[in-house]
């Protein structure tokens, strides 16, 4: 398998071609915008939470194959999970994408691991996850219209955390 094929695995391209859970939700518990200012890509995530479960998740916006596939697979992975499980998944996903190992609970999401080797593209993959993290925080605080999050800022902190964890 060539390097490009390791990053853009067939399943990734397939999700990019036909993203799942694209669209909006009405009603929703929280609506969260995420932006990647360095490239201008934007994503809007809608969550409906019920009794501690992610009842439904949708996204809209535009971006590259990686950001679209990542958002598609993320919404698929969190639907029907508890909020706590979704939060744990965020941690595992970020660890994987920063090259810090693959937790088995990631399941199908493991096909995105190759992106960790393309440093320039890590933020494309984390955009939807950063939005999810912020959305769950907003929902816990009872906010339905969450303020936009900036993946550049969050990812920079995550990357430093990952370096600290590795060296300490």
């Amino acid at each position: 398998m060539g390097f490009l094929e390791q990053v853009y695995r067939d399943a990734v391209l397939e999700h990019a071609r036909s993203p799942r859970n694209r669209g909006t939700l009405d009603p929703y518990t929280v609506r969260q915008e995420g932006i990647n200012p360095s490239c201008g890509d934007e994503l809007v995530l809608y969550l409906r939470l019920q009794d501690g479960l992610v009842d439904d998740a949708r996204f809209e916006g535009h971006g590259c194959a990686i950001s679209q596939a990542s958002a598609s697979m993320m919404t698929q992975a969190i639907k029907g999970r508890t909020v706590d499980e979704a939060e744990a998944l965020i941690g595992h996903f970020k660890a994987m994408i920063h090259g810090k190992g693959v937790d088995p609970s990631l399941g199908d999401l493991q096909v995105l691991e190759g992106i960790s080797k393309l440093h320039a593209r890590v933020k494309c993959a984390t955009l939807s996850w950063v939005a999810l993290d912020a959305a769950l925080g907003a929902a816990a605080a009872g906010t339905a219209e969450a303020p936009q999050v900036d993946v550049d800022a969050v990812d920079a902190v995550d990357a430093v955390d990952a370096i600290d964890a590795a060296s300490g």
């Binding site: 490009l4 490239c39 971006g63 590259c64 393309l118 494309c124």
Partner: peptide
């Protein structure tokens, strides 16, 4: 049919460095 970032990555793996994005010129985009 291909996002410029994906174009840039596909070229990068062949050693070709180009820029992709809005080039700090959003009004022009």
């Amino acid at each position: 049919g291909v996002h410029p970032h994906d174009v840039a990555s596909a070229l990068d793996v062949r050693g070709v460095a180009i820029r992709a994005g809005h080039h700090c010129a959003q009004p022009l985009m």
